[in-house]
């Protein structure tokens, strides 16, 4: 597999990331866009901040670079990478959930869900009260992060 081709990703803040194609196609959403030929110049990822996008790219790189073998050491290494990867605050994890869901990277979602659930489980009532206050629970604004933007671009 050659690393010759690169893909340009543009994020929420307008920053661009140049990524090897093999890394960029790790997320299914991007792979489909490339297949559909609508990513010849730059792929816009309007929902993703640079912090999250670099984390996602870091994740994809690691998973592409780790040899796809049944070797125990490689598997364990990837696992410990994933565990370190989800060591983040709740806000970051929520952003990651949105980004991973949007980019269709399913394998890590399970681990992130569990991490957030464990965080909630481990919270004391005081902390929960604080979380309740901060979040204010306005559910009317369920922001469905859909592919609307992409769809309008494609059409």
């Amino acid at each position: 597999m050659s690393y010759s081709k690169t893909i340009v990703l543009t994020n929420y803040d307008g920053e661009t990331f140049v990524v090897d194609e093999v890394v960029a196609v790790e997320p299914q959403t991007i792979e489909h866009m490339i297949e559909d030929g609508c990513a010849n110049t730059s792929i816009p990822l309007p929902n993703v901040t640079s912090k999250i996008l670099s984390k996602v790219i870091e994740h994809c790189k690691k998973h592409v670079e780790t040899p796809n073998s049944n070797e125990k050491a490689a598997k364990a290494d990837l696992k410990s990478f994933d565990f370190d990867f989800v060591k983040a605050d709740q806000g970051t994890l929520f952003d990651l959930i949105l980004a991973m869901n949007y980019l269709n990277i399913k394998e890590l979602l399970d681990l992130i869900y569990q991490t957030v659930a464990d965080m909630i489980k481990g919270k004391t009532p005081e902390e929960e009260e604080e979380m309740r206050r901060v979040n204010a629970w306005v559910f009317s604004c369920f922001v469905g992060v859909t592919c609307l933007y992409f769809k309008s671009k494609k059409m």
Partner: peptide, 10 residues
Amino acid sequence: KQPTTMEKLP
């Protein structure tokens, strides 16, 4: 971008 909170998740 505002930090994402739980209620913003679909």
